[in-house]
Amino acid sequence: MNVPPVVPAPEWEAARQRLLVKEKAQTRAHDALAAERRRMPWMAVEKDYRFEGPDGPVRLLDLFEGRRQLIVYRFFFEPGVHGWPERACVGCSMMADQVGHLAHLNARGTTYARVSRAPQPDIRRLKREMGWDSPWYTLTDDFDADFGVDQWHGTNAFVRDGERVFRTYFVNHRGDEALGSTWSYLDLTAFGRQEEWEDSPEGYPRTRAYEWWRRHDEYDTGTDPWEGRLDEKVAATKAHARTSAGGAS
Protein backbone atom coordinates (compact mmCIF):
# COMPACT_ATOMS: atom_id res chain seq x y z
CA MET A 1 0.00 0.00 0.00
CA ASN A 2 1.10 3.56 -0.70
CA VAL A 3 0.62 4.81 2.87
CA PRO A 4 1.11 8.43 4.04
CA PRO A 5 4.47 9.46 5.53
CA VAL A 6 5.28 9.02 9.20
CA VAL A 7 6.06 12.41 10.77
CA PRO A 8 6.97 13.89 14.19
CA ALA A 9 4.16 15.02 16.54
CA PRO A 10 4.36 18.78 15.72
CA GLU A 11 4.06 18.09 11.98
CA TRP A 12 1.21 15.64 12.60
CA GLU A 13 -0.65 18.23 14.72
CA ALA A 14 -0.17 20.91 12.04
CA ALA A 15 -1.70 18.58 9.46
CA ARG A 16 -4.61 17.85 11.79
CA GLN A 17 -5.24 21.58 12.33
CA ARG A 18 -5.30 22.18 8.56
CA LEU A 19 -7.89 19.45 8.12
CA LEU A 20 -9.87 20.70 11.13
CA VAL A 21 -10.57 23.98 9.30
CA LYS A 22 -12.29 22.01 6.53
CA GLU A 23 -14.13 19.78 9.01
CA LYS A 24 -15.56 22.82 10.82
CA ALA A 25 -16.69 24.26 7.50
CA GLN A 26 -18.43 20.98 6.75
CA THR A 27 -20.15 21.06 10.15
CA ARG A 28 -21.40 24.60 9.56
CA ALA A 29 -22.66 23.58 6.10
CA HIS A 30 -24.49 20.63 7.67
CA ASP A 31 -26.15 22.93 10.21
CA ALA A 32 -27.18 25.35 7.46
CA LEU A 33 -28.70 22.52 5.44
CA ALA A 34 -30.66 21.33 8.48
CA ALA A 35 -31.91 24.89 9.01
CA GLU A 36 -33.11 24.97 5.41
CA ARG A 37 -34.78 21.61 5.91
CA ARG A 38 -36.75 23.05 8.85
CA ARG A 39 -38.16 25.61 6.43
CA MET A 40 -39.32 23.02 3.91
CA PRO A 41 -43.05 23.19 3.11
CA TRP A 42 -45.26 20.49 4.58
CA MET A 43 -47.35 18.09 2.51
CA ALA A 44 -50.73 17.05 3.93
CA VAL A 45 -51.26 13.28 4.09
CA GLU A 46 -54.78 12.80 2.77
CA LYS A 47 -55.09 8.98 2.69
CA ASP A 48 -56.05 6.96 5.74
CA TYR A 49 -53.10 4.55 5.74
CA ARG A 50 -53.45 1.34 7.72
CA PHE A 51 -50.91 -1.04 9.21
CA GLU A 52 -50.93 -4.20 11.24
CA GLY A 53 -49.26 -3.76 14.61
CA PRO A 54 -48.39 -6.15 17.45
CA ASP A 55 -51.88 -5.63 18.91
CA GLY A 56 -53.88 -5.40 15.69
CA PRO A 57 -54.78 -2.81 13.02
CA VAL A 58 -53.50 0.76 13.45
CA ARG A 59 -53.55 4.01 11.48
CA LEU A 60 -50.58 6.15 10.48
CA LEU A 61 -51.63 8.51 13.26
CA ASP A 62 -51.22 5.70 15.79
CA LEU A 63 -47.59 5.21 14.80
CA PHE A 64 -46.82 8.57 16.44
CA GLU A 65 -47.60 7.00 19.86
CA GLY A 66 -48.98 10.34 20.96
CA ARG A 67 -45.88 12.33 20.06
CA ARG A 68 -45.71 15.22 17.61
CA GLN A 69 -43.15 13.84 15.15
CA LEU A 70 -42.68 10.47 13.46
CA ILE A 71 -39.74 8.96 11.55
CA VAL A 72 -40.60 5.89 9.47
CA TYR A 73 -37.94 3.60 7.97
CA ARG A 74 -39.01 1.22 5.20
CA PHE A 75 -37.32 -2.07 6.13
CA PHE A 76 -37.21 -4.83 3.50
CA PHE A 77 -38.31 -7.99 5.30
CA GLU A 78 -40.89 -9.89 3.25
CA PRO A 79 -41.31 -12.50 0.51
CA GLY A 80 -38.83 -11.89 -2.31
CA VAL A 81 -36.08 -10.55 -0.05
CA HIS A 82 -32.93 -12.69 0.02
CA GLY A 83 -32.98 -14.91 3.11
CA TRP A 84 -36.77 -14.77 3.62
CA PRO A 85 -38.31 -15.83 5.92
CA GLU A 86 -35.40 -16.54 8.24
CA ARG A 87 -33.47 -13.35 7.50
CA ALA A 88 -34.10 -9.75 6.42
CA CYS A 89 -32.32 -7.48 3.92
CA VAL A 90 -28.60 -7.28 4.75
CA GLY A 91 -28.40 -3.50 4.35
CA CYS A 92 -31.56 -2.85 6.35
CA SER A 93 -30.29 -5.16 9.08
CA MET A 94 -26.98 -3.33 9.27
CA MET A 95 -28.81 -0.01 9.56
CA ALA A 96 -31.04 -1.40 12.30
CA ASP A 97 -27.95 -2.33 14.30
CA GLN A 98 -26.71 1.26 14.34
CA VAL A 99 -29.90 2.97 15.60
CA GLY A 100 -29.31 4.60 18.98
CA HIS A 101 -31.50 4.34 22.07
CA LEU A 102 -34.93 5.69 21.19
CA ALA A 103 -35.52 7.32 24.59
CA HIS A 104 -33.49 10.33 23.43
CA LEU A 105 -35.64 10.80 20.31
CA ASN A 106 -38.77 10.32 22.38
CA ALA A 107 -37.61 13.07 24.75
CA ARG A 108 -37.76 15.45 21.76
CA GLY A 109 -41.33 14.39 21.01
CA THR A 110 -40.24 12.12 18.17
CA THR A 111 -41.14 8.47 17.53
CA TYR A 112 -39.11 6.11 15.33
CA ALA A 113 -40.77 3.12 13.64
CA ARG A 114 -40.10 0.55 10.93
CA VAL A 115 -42.52 -0.81 8.34
CA SER A 116 -42.30 -3.99 6.24
CA ARG A 117 -44.66 -6.38 4.46
CA ALA A 118 -43.71 -9.30 6.68
CA PRO A 119 -46.50 -10.59 8.95
CA GLN A 120 -46.27 -9.68 12.62
CA PRO A 121 -45.28 -13.20 13.81
CA ASP A 122 -42.20 -13.07 11.56
CA ILE A 123 -41.37 -9.55 12.72
CA ARG A 124 -41.64 -10.58 16.37
CA ARG A 125 -39.34 -13.56 15.77
CA LEU A 126 -36.74 -11.51 13.90
CA LYS A 127 -36.74 -8.76 16.55
CA ARG A 128 -36.16 -11.36 19.24
CA GLU A 129 -33.37 -13.11 17.33
CA MET A 130 -31.56 -9.90 16.38
CA GLY A 131 -32.06 -8.03 19.66
CA TRP A 132 -34.03 -5.15 18.09
CA ASP A 133 -36.77 -3.39 20.04
CA SER A 134 -37.93 -0.56 17.74
CA PRO A 135 -41.67 -0.36 16.93
CA TRP A 136 -42.30 -2.31 13.72
CA TYR A 137 -45.49 -2.51 11.67
CA THR A 138 -46.77 -4.51 8.72
CA LEU A 139 -47.69 -2.61 5.53
CA THR A 140 -51.20 -3.38 4.26
CA ASP A 141 -51.81 -0.75 1.56
CA ASP A 142 -50.00 1.69 -0.78
CA PHE A 143 -48.05 3.58 1.88
CA ASP A 144 -44.70 2.34 0.54
CA ALA A 145 -45.50 3.20 -3.09
CA ASP A 146 -46.96 6.59 -2.20
CA PHE A 147 -43.92 7.60 -0.15
CA GLY A 148 -41.14 6.41 -2.45
CA VAL A 149 -40.12 3.25 -0.62
CA ASP A 150 -41.74 0.41 -2.56
CA GLN A 151 -38.59 -0.53 -4.50
CA TRP A 152 -35.85 0.72 -2.18
CA HIS A 153 -35.32 1.56 1.46
CA GLY A 154 -35.94 5.12 2.64
CA THR A 155 -36.77 7.27 5.64
CA ASN A 156 -39.82 9.56 5.79
CA ALA A 157 -40.42 12.25 8.43
CA PHE A 158 -43.89 13.33 9.51
CA VAL A 159 -45.45 15.77 11.96
CA ARG A 160 -49.00 15.83 13.28
CA ASP A 161 -51.43 18.56 14.27
CA GLY A 162 -54.14 16.82 16.24
CA GLU A 163 -55.62 14.28 13.82
CA ARG A 164 -53.89 15.77 10.77
CA VAL A 165 -50.59 14.34 9.52
CA PHE A 166 -48.04 16.11 7.30
CA ARG A 167 -45.02 14.75 5.46
CA THR A 168 -42.03 17.00 6.13
CA TYR A 169 -38.98 15.25 4.64
CA PHE A 170 -37.68 12.16 2.85
CA VAL A 171 -34.21 10.68 2.37
CA ASN A 172 -32.98 7.46 0.73
CA HIS A 173 -29.97 5.84 -0.94
CA ARG A 174 -26.73 7.17 0.59
CA GLY A 175 -28.71 9.66 2.63
CA ASP A 176 -29.95 6.72 4.70
CA GLU A 177 -26.65 5.00 5.36
CA ALA A 178 -25.29 7.57 7.84
CA LEU A 179 -28.45 7.61 9.96
CA GLY A 180 -28.62 6.01 13.38
CA SER A 181 -27.64 8.60 15.95
CA THR A 182 -30.17 10.74 17.79
CA TRP A 183 -28.77 13.85 16.09
CA SER A 184 -28.88 12.44 12.56
CA TYR A 185 -32.58 11.68 12.94
CA LEU A 186 -33.51 14.94 14.65
CA ASP A 187 -31.74 16.89 11.90
CA LEU A 188 -34.19 15.34 9.41
CA THR A 189 -37.27 16.46 11.32
CA ALA A 190 -39.38 19.59 10.96
CA PHE A 191 -38.30 20.89 14.39
CA GLY A 192 -34.70 19.67 14.43
CA ARG A 193 -32.82 19.24 17.70
CA GLN A 194 -34.92 21.98 19.35
CA GLU A 195 -31.90 23.65 20.91
CA GLU A 196 -31.37 27.40 21.24
CA TRP A 197 -28.28 27.58 19.03
CA GLU A 198 -30.15 26.31 15.98
CA ASP A 199 -31.34 28.59 13.20
CA SER A 200 -35.07 27.79 13.33
CA PRO A 201 -38.18 29.78 12.36
CA GLU A 202 -39.68 32.07 14.98
CA GLY A 203 -41.77 30.26 17.57
CA TYR A 204 -40.25 26.82 17.09
CA PRO A 205 -39.73 24.92 20.37
CA ARG A 206 -36.18 25.29 21.70
CA THR A 207 -34.41 24.57 24.95
CA ARG A 208 -30.84 25.11 26.14
CA ALA A 209 -28.31 22.67 24.75
CA TYR A 210 -27.18 19.91 27.11
CA GLU A 211 -29.77 20.73 29.77
CA TRP A 212 -32.42 18.35 28.41
CA TRP A 213 -29.96 15.46 28.02
CA ARG A 214 -30.53 12.49 30.35
CA ARG A 215 -29.46 8.90 30.72
CA HIS A 216 -31.94 6.88 28.71
CA ASP A 217 -33.74 5.60 31.82
CA GLU A 218 -34.03 9.04 33.46
CA TYR A 219 -36.32 10.96 31.10
CA ASP A 220 -39.72 12.23 32.14
CA THR A 221 -41.72 10.38 29.49
CA GLY A 222 -44.69 12.67 30.05
CA THR A 223 -42.79 15.76 28.94
CA ASP A 224 -44.00 17.29 25.66
CA PRO A 225 -41.49 19.90 24.39
CA TRP A 226 -44.19 21.27 22.07
CA GLU A 227 -46.86 21.91 24.69
CA GLY A 228 -49.23 24.28 22.87
CA ARG A 229 -46.55 25.45 20.42
CA LEU A 230 -47.31 23.37 17.32
CA ASP A 231 -50.91 24.54 17.22
CA GLU A 232 -49.67 28.15 17.14
CA LYS A 233 -47.22 27.35 14.33
CA VAL A 234 -49.89 25.63 12.20
CA ALA A 235 -52.34 28.48 12.80
CA ALA A 236 -49.72 31.03 11.70
CA THR A 237 -48.94 28.99 8.60
CA LYS A 238 -52.61 28.80 7.64
CA ALA A 239 -53.03 32.53 8.19
CA HIS A 240 -50.05 33.23 5.94
CA ALA A 241 -51.51 30.97 3.24
CA ARG A 242 -54.83 32.84 3.38
CA THR A 243 -53.06 36.19 3.13
CA SER A 244 -50.98 35.00 0.17
CA ALA A 245 -54.15 33.88 -1.56
CA GLY A 246 -55.71 37.31 -1.23
CA GLY A 247 -57.66 36.64 1.92
CA ALA A 248 -59.53 33.61 0.63
CA SER A 249 -60.81 31.30 3.34
Rank of each mutant, 00 (worst) to 15 (best):
M1H: 09
P5V: 10
P5Y: 07
P5R: 09
P10N: 06
W12T: 09
A14N: 11
R16F: 11
R18W: 01
V21T: 08
E23I: 09
T27H: 13
A32S: 13
L33K: 15
A35M: 07
A35F: 05
R39P: 01
M40S: 15
M40I: 05
W42S: 10
M43F: 10
E46K: 09
R50M: 08
R50P: 05
F51R: 07
P54F: 04
D55L: 12
D55F: 11
G56H: 06
V58M: 02
L60E: 04
D62A: 10
R67G: 06
V72S: 01
F75H: 09
E78D: 04
P79C: 00
H82Y: 12
R87V: 03
A88F: 01
A88P: 06
C89L: 04
C92K: 01
S93G: 07
Q98A: 03
V99H: 00
H101F: 01
A103I: 01
G109T: 02
T110L: 05
T110Y: 00
A113F: 00
I123W: 03
R128S: 11
S134F: 09
P135S: 02
P135Y: 02
T140V: 12
D141F: 10
D142L: 08
F143M: 05
A145N: 13
D150V: 09
D150W: 06
Q151T: 05
T155C: 15
F158C: 04
R160T: 02
R160H: 02
E163C: 07
R164I: 02
R164N: 04
R167S: 13
R167D: 09
T168L: 02
T168R: 03
G175C: 03
D176M: 10
E177G: 09
G180D: 05
S181E: 04
S184W: 05
Y185H: 13
Y185R: 11
L188K: 01
T189S: 08
A190E: 09
F191G: 02
E196S: 12
W197M: 08
E198N: 03
T207L: 15
A209Q: 07
A209G: 10
W213D: 14
R214V: 09
H216Y: 08
E218M: 11
T221P: 05
G222S: 12
G222N: 04
P225V: 06
E227W: 07
E227R: 11
G228P: 08
L230W: 07
K233A: 11
K238C: 05
A239P: 11
H240I: 12
S244G: 11
G246K: 15
G247A: 12
A248V: 15
